[in-house]
């Protein structure tokens, strides 16, 4: 049993890292990774939304949708739940950290359409996790996202100070950095013996 949780932990953060291995949630990954500070804020918001929406979508799916045999509305129902959590995060941030709220800008409401979040909830269903596994998968996938965005933000902060050829400045070099980062993460694949 413990091995299953450990597999989710390693899988969510390294092996099946949402951004670097599955290419999901690229929009905020590139959009808010200019500074480590905002990247961390974004990562924490995503962790919160992923973990709680995993939990709630599991509850809704298992105890509402499945008994009524209407699993086909899962996508729309899940989006509804995710959107609600994003709204909640937005309110909390606006109240307690206006500067972070301002820095995240339009990317905060965009967590709603962050495919990584919807992806994790749908994967929970696909992998038929139990409630704890689903919650942990959401949590660790969020941690994985945070790790990826923090790494890229760290690289980008250094890139600003480096002498980059004119034509590579800005997004091109960022995409290259993201690609190299993603290649590094392929080293983890196969770790779960899958």
């Amino acid at each position: 049993m413990e091995t299953a949780y450990f597999a989710i932990f390693i899988g969510g953060i390294f092996v099946n890292n949402f951004v670097l291995s599955q290419s999901l949630g690229i929009c905020p990954f590139l959009g808010v990774s200019k500074k480590t500070e905002t990247a961390l804020g974004m990562g924490l918001a995503v962790i919160f939304v992923m973990a709680l929406s995993s939990l709630f979508t599991y509850i809704v799916y298992t105890w509402i949708l499945t008994p009524l045999n209407i699993q086909y509305i899962q996508t729309i129902a899940f989006i509804l739940i995710i959107a609600s959590f994003v709204q909640l995060v937005e309110m909390v941030l606006k109240k307690f950290s206006p500067s972070l709220y301002g820095a995240l800008g339009v990317y905060l409401p965009l967590i709603t359409t962050n495919c990584a979040v919807l992806g994790v909830t749908l994967l929970n269903v696909q992998e038929s996790y139990n409630i704890l596994e689903a919650f942990l998968n959401g949590l660790f996938s969020g941690v994985g996202f945070t790790l990826a965005i923090l790494l890229l933000a760290g690289i980008r902060e250094r890139l600003v100070k480096s002498d980059i050829p004119e034509s590579f400045k800005g997004f091109p070099i960022t995409l290259i950095a993201a690609a190299v980062l993603s290649m590094a993460f392929t080293a983890f694949s196969g770790m779960l013996g899958g």
Partner: peptide
């Protein structure tokens, strides 16, 4: 399905409006 979606929306709507007042 419509009813379920409506119910979910209603529950979260109530929670959010309460949170909106609080926060």
């Amino acid at each position: 399905p419509l009813g379920i979606l409506f119910a979910i929306a209603l529950v979260f709507g109530v929670i959010l409006s309460y949170a909106g007042k609080k926060l």
